[in-house]
Design a protein around this nucleic acid. Structure first.
Lengths: 331, 331
DNA sequence: CCTCGATCGGACAACGTTGTCAGACAGGTA
DNA sequence: TACCTGTCTGACAACGTTGTCCGATCGAGG
């Protein structure tokens, strides 16, 4: 900056003014400075600038996902990036892999870099380090999973309602023995989906048969095995509700192997690419992931703009997409 | 930091020493400082620190992808994140959408934040602003697409060889009329894949029939339409080579609609989830995406460590995965 | 030609941190 | 006791930028 000032024959402060587009520099100088900037390949140093500026904003936010590579996370990421771009803000993304230590480590990394705000898909229970963040005054928004503290903004799906829709959909087609395959119940969304399953059965006046429930299915292979197991029973389910993407795929794989894909009904939570090209195509409960990301970013930036007031809890509706597998009638 | 020093009854410099784990502070003080840090919820300010420190490192890198939400990009992202984590470095990711202006805008945003290095999936032709980055001395690695300048490290797949494998695979099964569906030829990878297609035909002594080639297919719908078109001809292809994920899916959709999926052979470039669960399962040329990301990060960090010497150009081999669609024999 | 007001430019300090360097202190030796 | 060595500690300045504030300059009016 000093070099630019020297070349343009002005003071550094004047260069600062031009670079920041402040009023108060007349024409001859303005273009002389811009020319010098160009000639010297000068790049404004945002870190130094934010250190000095009164608001101290770094124009960056932290995004804590389960895994930047999974479709749900990366779709969220993209929606948030797009919203942030309009605010000239960059996004640091990190993967927690559902691990509390990694989450803590990333939160710390975000904090030392002085991000302006955080959007977080929180792991099960790691609330102390989140609380610390909050005390530091960094705005915070939770996505996908409800906030451990009620007083933090959050954007979630109606997991319970969506699951209930899925199960009711199959009940309406005559199924009475509907299996449940879900992720670890320590994950709040998984738990909510189980409760939706139970709700639907209760509303229909059916007893919940624990033999039809598998509650700690974490990946495709486990789902495959659990499905094989369920269908091998003496009184197998005639329909399945799978609580998550990978589980749905595992179930499809197993049904296929058993040749049962056209006989056993299936509705999965979460949409996925190519669900419509499978045989049968898979009926799913779809979440509005992009809209969740957009909304979370909107909430965060409104806090950054100094919006006060009560924490907001946005709940997004889910949508049942009929594709075939969920419309198989009970035998 | 001043507050911490005051509470611990030491100078700020001593706090700095403790926080950075420097030698030269004896026991009574060390723990007194740590206690004060804890009591005051003090967080080290990395931006100020990097401003002052001699190396000026911000412990962050910029990652310029086509779209953080697409599977290829997000897999790369994850691999790079993992490598960076071991170096206590955070990743800014951004989506260019193949748009030169967005690319320029993001490069600028990275630069003003003084990232330590850049990993870039470059758009077609935007070499001036990349050159500018290089003049500033920011280490740079290109991924997926070869470098416009030869003197920049790069990690790419053997697109030409992979495409040739795909086409040869179908030639060996008796096909003589093999269609090509590829992305815009301004994208270097798309062009290389076309050349691989042409190479394979030439090696087999076959003439390249322009009527079987569609070179500007950019998305699923266009691929669907192009496939319908090709198969409607008087002398339709008996096999298809699709140059990219979305194109493959569009082709699958069209073949399905025509009921031709078990008659027309298909090999696609790029693997994708569920390719194995389609009917028939899709034979693909798979890239080692995770390894590409890891390697790119490795190259970047070795430059950050001051590694000099010639630019390296790593070319990853591709792998043909037989699943069924590519093994359909010619009629 | 002088004065006044409005407008623009620049010197200085400070943001939070660390590199440099000199001073303080303890312990050992002559 | 005087002196020296080595180990810790702290004062100061500086990283690149911007907020504050004062002084300079210019144009218009008397």
């Amino acid at each position: 900056m000093r070099d630019v000032a020297a070349l343009a024959g002005v003071s550094v402060k004047t260069v600062s003014r031009v670079v920041n587009g402040e009023a108060g520099v007349r024409e001859p100088l303005t273009s002389r400075v811009q020319k010098a900037v160009f000639l010297l390949d000068y790049r404004h140093n945002l870190t130094a600038s934010s250190l000095r500026r009164s608001d101290g904003k770094t124009a960056s936010i932290g995004l804590l996902l389960e895994d930047v590579a999974n479709p749900f996370s990366s779709t969220l990421h993209r929606a948030i990036e797009d919203f942030a771009r309009a605010r000239a803000t960059l996004v640091f993304a990190g993967s927690s892999d559902e691990d509390a230590d990694r989450e803590r480590e990333l939160l710390r990394a975000f904090a030392v870099r002085r991000v302006d705000g955080l959007i977080i898909v929180p792991t099960n229970r790691n609330q102390e380090s989140l609380g610390q963040e909050r005390r530091l005054g960094t705005p915070l928004v939770f996505v996908d999973r409800p906030a451990g503290f009620a007083n933090v903004d959050s954007v979630t799906s109606d997991n319970r309602g969506g699951a209930e829709d899925a199960v009711r959909h199959m009940l309406e087609r005559g199924h009475r023995r509907i299996g449940f395959l879900g992720d670890l119940q320590t994950i709040t969304t998984a738990n909510e989906r189980y409760r939706g399953y139970a709700d639907a059965l209760a509303s229909a006046g059916l007893a919940l048969d624990p033999a039809l429930v598998r509650k700690s299915v974490t990946d495709t292979d486990a789902a495959d095995a659990a499905t094989m197991d369920l269908l091998a029973s003496a009184t197998p389910p005639t329909a399945l509700f799978t609580g998550q993407n990978l589980i749905t795929i595992g179930a499809v794989r197993a049904l296929r192997r058993l040749g049962a894909q056209h006989r056993v009904a299936l509705v999965g939570f979460d949409d996925f690419t190519l669900a419509d090209l499978l045989e049968p195509a898979i009926t799913v409960i779809a979440q509005e992931v992009t809209e969740m990301g957009r909304k979370a970013a909107e909430l965060l930036f409104s806090r950054l703009d100094g919006e006060g007031g009560e924490a907001q809890h946005v709940v997004m509706q889910t949508e049942l997409i009929e594709r075939g597998s969920g419309e198989i009638q009970a035998p």
